[in-house]
Simulated assay, not measured.
Amino acid sequence: MSRSETNTPVVLEPGKDYRSKQDIALHEDIVQYYKECYWDYRTSWLDSHNLAIHYGYWDENTKSHSQSLVDMNRLLADTAAIQPGEKVLDAGCGIGGSSIWLAENRGAQVTGITLSPEQLAMARANAKRRGVSDRVEFQLADYCATPFADASFDVVWGLESVCYALSKADFIREAFRVLKPGGRLVTADGFALRREYSEDEWRVIRICLDGWAIPNLALPEDFRAHLQEAGFADIRYRDISANTLPSARRMYVTALLTYPMQRIMAWLRLRTSAQSGNFYTALNQYRIFRDEMAGYGLFCAVKPKPAKSLFAFWR
């Protein structure tokens, strides 16, 4: 019998904060992580064209890592059928990559929100550099409690940002509130594939949750239930784990190649704890997807339009 088979299983509880750093508020942890780890992404992942802090989408037409990052934007935009002139809320906009892409390629009017003042400044600078400041704006805001009026947006977009919500249901309820009737919620993110894990599996998962300041992962069935409870209809889910696995593998190989540098720089105290955590997450995340402890999925759901009464119909 293997070691993992003799361990007491860890049962995943929805909405629980599984980070080791319980003494640090979740929002503070997220902001500090992105502040300290931006240059890891800048030097090994994104470029000035895609501005992407997310996994790429790979299919038979994908030729490069950079193209895969842009193709993830295209996949979400096609899934939500975003049209020119529609108002999009980019919930967790990072440094503005998806917001700018939507303005440039779909003619959307985009509002991006982030918790990070550093990301806000970079997103605004990137939009100005790309000449889309008239179509894209950025604000500091919590996507679970936004400052926007009811029915303000045609689309709420969450690309690898919803995982940071302690309560996924809170995010979904707020998305429903700010969407217009007929509006769409589209999200792509990592999801837990089962509720129980061996202690060895959980050790690897915790490395990644801690390293990326993520409180928990939802199961697809729980996320779907939250969507239904909020009032969404036409709920569609697609597992795209196979299409994102090349990105996970690339991240793992990059970490392997830079392992000696990480050890030396950490020994010299030239790497912060957040940067080292980011590195070890990059080293371990591939195993999570490869061994199907977690998957990568795409959700799209619609806020229904009010039904017309018979009186209104005959009038």
Results as ranks from 00 to 15, higher is better:
S2E: 13
N7I: 11
P9W: 02
V10S: 10
V11G: 13
P14A: 02
Y18T: 06
Y18G: 01
R19I: 03
K21F: 01
K21H: 10
Q22F: 00
I24D: 01
L26M: 06
D29C: 05
D29W: 13
I30T: 06
E36L: 10
D40L: 15
D47A: 06
S48V: 14
H49P: 09
H49G: 10
N50Q: 10
L51E: 02
H54Y: 08
Y57V: 02
N61G: 11
H65K: 04
M72N: 04
R74F: 12
R74V: 09
R74Y: 12
L75G: 06
L75V: 07
L76M: 11
D78G: 08
I82K: 07
Q83D: 03
P84G: 04
E86Y: 10
V88W: 00
G94R: 08
I95P: 03
S98D: 06
S99P: 02
E104C: 05
G107K: 10
A108H: 09
V110Q: 00
G112F: 04
G112R: 08
T114K: 05
L115F: 00
Q119P: 01
K128A: 01
R129H: 09
E137W: 08
A141P: 12
F148R: 14
A149T: 02
V156K: 01
V156N: 07
V156I: 04
V162S: 09
C163S: 08
L166H: 07
K168D: 03
D170G: 13
I172W: 12
P181E: 07
D189G: 03
F191G: 14
S198D: 13
E199G: 13
E201S: 15
W202G: 12
L209D: 02
D210K: 00
G211F: 00
P215T: 09
N216Y: 06
L227V: 04
D234C: 07
D234W: 05
I235Y: 01
R236D: 14
Y237N: 00
R238T: 12
I240E: 01
S241T: 03
R249H: 12
R250V: 05
R250A: 10
R250P: 10
R250I: 07
L256H: 03
T258E: 14
I264L: 14
L270W: 09
R271N: 08
S273W: 14
Q275L: 03
G277S: 02
N278I: 10
N278Q: 09
A282L: 12
F289Y: 06
R290D: 14
R290A: 13
R290Q: 15
E292I: 08
A294P: 07
G297R: 03
A301G: 00
K303N: 02
P304R: 01
P306E: 05
A312N: 13
A312Y: 12
A312E: 13
W314T: 14
